[in-house]
Design a protein around this nucleic acid. Structure first.
Lengths: 200, 200
DNA sequence: TTATATTATTAACATTGTTAATATATTAAA
DNA sequence: TTTAATATATTAACAATGTTAATAATATAA
């Protein structure tokens, strides 16, 4: 029975990885049940033995990609850096990851993949990217950039404005370039953090 | 030749309105070429004489819905109101419109409808909802809530954080209720505006 | 009234997600 | 080891989709 479970997990991983590859190469719209089956080395109907439907498979991919984003962000982590600089770096990295992979943004944030995120939210399970950004912000608070009690509000503001900008950039609703966006994000973060420092 | 153009516009309006009705009733996913044709009183292939593809039809709908949102926001306009209150009211109205019509949000901001928004952006044409929010913010600046030179940055922050929250709410990525979201938006706006007032 | 151009309709195609029926392989029992 | 039972994979099939080409109907011009 344990052996069964292992095999099942392995089969699911085959399909998930196949799906991730296809999404990376051809986008979410390029993903079809038949392509996933072929790429995983099975018939197109086999994945229905492991996933209720294509949405469920997509949900697994979404989580995986969000974890990949976390790994990407870690590449910009440097504890010797000033905390505000670190916050800016992490924010920009987050933006960049999805800006350069628009289909991943759509999948992770806008595609209809059922109620999984809501369920996780109610269990207070937050994705690692969230935690990383929060940690960085708390460091900023300790360094006096911002008062402790404002951490929640400012963190939430940074996060939501990042996602708002991503919607516009990724959805082609803005004519701004990636570099302009990044500059704007830096300005945003500075603005949100520096109000305590200016005394005049 | 002018008569021709009028007839063409009218035909397009038939299809656009049919599509808008279907989207309102059944969501973007419920919209099919065949349903649009039937609802408009034509065969399913006729719309291809007026639109290159379904995406183009969707783009027209998106613009229309965004204009509808503007009208909705105007219902909350009250010049006797304090400018900050007005800004909060408009921000919340904007959020509410799309939060209560998730499919409209998807259509207007996340659906793939070609490069029309980018084109408009380069012509510096901004949707009326944008202008209304900006006007309100300028009023706030005149009332001393914020310095003139910060208007752009703060305006951009409000807008992007609104859209970020919408992504989460509409995409089911947050477990927050609508009321909680609205409260958060109010807190955000206050926070972004009041830093000039607190002297301590 | 006839000839021409415009516009609408029907028929058809390839693709899609998904399911039911069937075949194959794996495990348990004799 | 052979047989029976179970689990898993495959094929065939369905209805629905966007879109196009061929055809029919209509409006316009001569």
């Amino acid at each position: 029975m344990d052996r069964k479970e292992i095999q099942k997990q392995r089969m699911m991983a085959y399909f998930i990885n196949a799906a991730k590859e296809i999404i990376t190469e051809e986008g979410v719209k390029g993903l079809t049940a038949r392509k996933v089956g072929e790429k995983a080395g099975f018939s197109y109907a086999t994945l229905y033995n492991y996933f209720n439907d294509i949405k469920e498979l997509l949900a697994y991919c979404a989580f995986d990609f969000l974890e990949d984003c976390y790994k990407y962000m870690l590449g910009f982590k440097d504890d010797s850096k000033d905390s505000l600089q670190q916050l800016i770096a992490h924010s920009c990295a987050y933006f960049r990851y999805f800006a350069e992979n628009p289909d991943l943004f759509r999948l992770v944030f806008t595609e209809d993949i059922g109620d999984i995120y809501k369920t996780l939210g109610k269990e207070n399970k937050r994705p690692s990217v969230d935690l990383l950004l929060e940690d960085t912000l708390v460091r900023c608070a300790r360094d006096g950039y911002i008062s402790e009690k404002k951490v929640d509000l400012v963190g939430e503001l940074i996060a939501s404005s990042l996602h708002g900008k991503l919607v516009f950039y990724v959805g082609g609703r803005s004519s701004m370039s990636l570099d302009e966006m990044i500059k704007l994000i830096e300005a945003d973060v500075r603005f949100l953090m520096e109000d305590k420092n200016e005394k005049e």
